[in-house]
Simulated scan of single mutants.
Amino acid sequence: MNETLVQFRSVGVRYASGAGEVSAVRDVCLDLHSGETFGLVGESGCGKTTLAMGLMGLLPPAARVDGDIVFQGRELGSLPESERRALRGDRMSMVFQDPATSLDPAFGIGGQIAETIRAHRGVGRKESKARALELLRQVGIPAAEQRYFDPPHRLSGGMRQRVVIAAALANQPALLLADEPTTALDVTIQAQILDLLRDLQRQHGTTILLIAHDLGVVAQICDRVGVMYAGQLVEVAPVAELFARPEHPYTRALLDALPGKTRTAGPLRVVAGEVPDLADPPSGCRFKDRCPQRTGDCDRTPPLADAGAGRRIACWLSPATRAAAARQAPGKSPTPVGELS
């Protein structure tokens, strides 16, 4: 996992809207390594899907992308659209939240996979069909030959998601973006899909960027986790470290909100307050108005700093963040505060 496959360098995404410019993603710096599963978590609207769509080059015309996204050594923003289109479905693929909207309702499932193969591999119909049948069997579609011409509505939700995953993996991409791939599925089918992703990753060495709000799913499948809040990356850590010792107050609040086996009867815990309006975000730390540990330093934006052991954090309560800020602005030492426990 040492080879870097994707680099986000100070990536931001802004939208023009009637309410003014919306800063949906701000200053994301992140590396994804070959062969790893990286989980991106946070509340709805925090920028997870927007970041992934920016990587895929699928943002609407009203969006403006700042910074650089580098994939396999190529800065994607500088590529002509024809080259980015050639990458999509080939070297990088995406599994969207709702398989029903990802498949053409008028065509057979096998033909849709075969079309993806022909578009990027230049093979004939016979060869692409054979490969599509192989993929359908690989993802667990029973009687693949008989189901090849079935339209999507004849399949269950779990089967449709398997077909979408087969299409995404048709050309053995280096990167698979999975956006809430189990949200619409029951728990049993969800477990099967996660097992399928793990098995396929082991076979092909694919890097997976898993976008999720379900922390249980992240704990099962991910190697590292990034936590986003209001468009910003606030913590990155190996998955076991994040769950055992969350450092950012927002990460702690998310984990505290999870129902546990030993939780006493009563209402579930929630993260107090509301997500800020991204058309008019607060200055400094965007979590400060909801944070029980807010200090005067929180009116300044904390840098995402290396805290060692694969962990990065953007919080003024972290010594690593404070040290990084001091290096950026020599002679301006923040007022000391207690370390995170």
Rank of each mutant, 00 (worst) to 15 (best):
D150C: 12
P336L: 04
A323H: 13
A144R: 03
F71H: 12
T4A: 02
K332W: 09
G77I: 07
L196Q: 02
I141N: 08
L76R: 10
G42W: 02
S93E: 02
L194N: 11
T321K: 10
A240V: 14
G205M: 10
P99H: 00
A144E: 06
F71D: 07
A324S: 06
L177C: 12
G89R: 02
L76G: 13
H213Q: 14
A170D: 00
Q172F: 09
I313E: 07
Q97Y: 01
F107H: 09
G266Q: 11
R327K: 14
T116C: 14
P281A: 09
K288F: 09
E127K: 15
A174G: 04
L242N: 11
S333H: 14
D27Q: 04
E235C: 04
E247I: 13
A324I: 03
K129W: 00
E241Q: 15
L197Q: 12
T188Y: 00
V28I: 14
D179N: 01
I109W: 02
E75Y: 00
L233T: 05
P181Q: 06
P99S: 00
A106M: 14
R198N: 13
F38R: 07
M53N: 06
K48D: 00
P142E: 10
L185H: 02
E339T: 15
R91D: 13
E3S: 11
G157I: 01
A240I: 11
F96G: 01
T335I: 13
L40M: 13
P319G: 03
I117P: 11
L55W: 03
V163C: 02
V28T: 03
R312K: 14
G273D: 07
P281I: 04
A143I: 05
D31N: 13
V22D: 08
V236N: 08
A329Y: 07
H33E: 10
R131P: 04
G308C: 08
D195W: 05
D179E: 01
E235Y: 02
R121F: 05
V139I: 02
S23L: 15
T206I: 06
G108T: 06
F96R: 00
S93N: 05
P60D: 14
D27H: 04
A52Q: 07
P330W: 08
G310W: 02
L30F: 15
V25H: 12
T101D: 07
A279Q: 10
A52S: 15
G108M: 09
V275N: 04
K288P: 03
A178R: 06
